[in-house]
Computed example of a mutant assay.
Amino acid sequence: MLKIALTKGRVEQKLIPLLQRCGIDCDPLINKQRKLIITLADQYHFILVKGDDVCTYLRKGTVDLGVVGSDVLAEQNADNQVDELLDLGTGRCQFIVAAKQDFNWQTPHRKVIGTKYPEVARRYFSSIGEDVEIIKIAGSVELAPLTGLADAIVDLTETGTTLRVNHLVVHDWLDVITSRLVANPVALKQKRNEIFKLVDQLQTVVEESEYENI
């Protein structure tokens, strides 16, 4: 049986149709109520966790696989301790750099950046040769430039609606984010056949979905 750490919420809901198209009965997951551990088809043992915890479960060997947004991987997996197996193509959004419309990016002062993703922000500004101060924010990142806490933000956006409502404009577009299937490297060796059977099923479904959307 494969143990899988699944990001609860949006990532979870987007995975269910893919599993169903693989012929897996997802009723226990759909009707889980408050259960956090669900078994499907006597083959898959899903553990519902927060996205930030998926890599922890994988690194500690508690699970074999994980389903998590690539934003989490971009922030946490710089050491490549988790192996990415498949881009599921769901939960699509994008990293952006944004600020108030009247912010002057040419000002010489050291800019302050608010973000939930300090490593992503650090890599981006380092890549353009700019030294910045980074403040990690757990809540609504959009508040940072509005209140004067930061000059700009690095955050995720799907439609841009929240940015527009709060009178923020995009300065630069960074990586596109989607949900990914990832693996514990040890499990990848020990349960290779089981893992790649699931990978092949999901890959077929993902490719069919992409073709249907052309």
Rank of each mutant, 00 (worst) to 15 (best):
L2F: 02
A5R: 00
T7L: 02
K8A: 04
R10F: 11
Q13W: 01
L15I: 06
P17I: 12
L18V: 01
C26F: 07
P28Q: 11
L29Y: 08
I30K: 13
K32R: 15
Q33F: 04
Q33N: 12
R34W: 02
L36F: 07
I37W: 11
L40R: 04
Q43N: 12
Q43R: 15
F46S: 01
D53Q: 11
C55S: 08
G61V: 04
T62P: 00
T62N: 12
L65W: 06
V68R: 02
G69D: 08
G69C: 08
S70Y: 03
D71S: 08
L88M: 09
G91S: 07
C93K: 08
I96K: 01
I96A: 02
V97Y: 08
A98R: 08
K100W: 05
D102K: 05
N104L: 04
W105D: 08
I113L: 03
T115D: 07
T115Y: 00
Y117V: 06
E119A: 09
R122G: 05
S126D: 15
G129Y: 01
D131Q: 13
V132Q: 13
I135M: 13
K136Q: 15
A138L: 10
L143P: 00
G148L: 08
A150R: 03
I153E: 13
T157R: 03
E158F: 02
E158I: 03
G160D: 00
G160C: 01
R164H: 12
H167W: 07
H167M: 10
H167T: 09
L174M: 13
L174E: 10
T178S: 15
A183G: 05
N184H: 07
L188Y: 06
K189W: 07
R192V: 04
F196K: 00
L198V: 07
L198H: 03
Q201G: 00
L202S: 03
Q203W: 05
T204D: 12
N213D: 14
I214H: 13
I214R: 14
